[in-house]
Amino acid sequence: MEQRATASLWEWANPVKFLRLSGWLLPWVSWGAAICLAVGLVWGFFFTPDDFRQGSTVKIIYLHVPAALMAINIWIMMLVTSLIWVIRRHHVSALAAKAAAPVGVVMTAIALVTGALWGQPMWGTWWAWDPRLTSFLILFLFYLGYVALWEAIENPDTAADLTAILCLVGSVFALLSRYAVLFWNQGLHQGASLSLDAEENVHDVFYIPLLVCIAGFVLLFVALLLLRTRTEIRARRIKALQARERAA
């Protein structure tokens, strides 16, 4: 039976179709990411005025804010793809979650390191147990556990099932930790004076290059995700072909 090309979104969950579409998309997304990042970062670093209070250190937001945004959103994306795997059992979905996790680790690490670099001149310390920083540190640990579990299990479907459930349970506990940390820090410090919220302090001159940078990071993530998912699919395909050779 012949199906129309636009029959369903789920068609793209077929590995072969996904490879075809992603192969076509990848160069566009990659170039988009490169252009957005180049424009946004150069604009942000060299063509915006220094902040009257923070001086030139404020410019680290062009790395810090997009990385932090991606760190959270990649986890949410992993949660969604894990759910799709659990419910509809599309292999591409599980592999996309697997492919996204290390990118998430790196984004979280970038957010933490740039935060420390920014914190040094601003707060006079590399690290403060500010609720926001602490939450990111905990998120980092969740990412590490998730990646480690994928690595530890041999059977790919078992690994996909177990990591998906870990992702669901982990998401609940990550949320709980976020509120716990907010509660915990209130009990210690005044909190608010230390917690410097980047978004609130951003003026229009900084705002547009920041948006460009965020777009660049999103495109960069999509490009990496497509690339890594394609690699995972091909690795599985090689394994499947080898298994067929052995069986024949």
Partner: peptide, 29 residues
């Protein structure tokens, strides 16, 4: 989660410790 993994003890700690954060925070507080 780790029952089928040989020498899964270290992995078990890595998986469980982040999940312990909220309990530890409220309990110790």
């Amino acid at each position: 989660l780790t029952v089928g993994i040989k020498r899964g003890g270290l992995l078990l700690s890595l998986l469980v410790l982040p999940l312990y954060v909220p309990t530890l925070i409220f309990g110790a507080e």
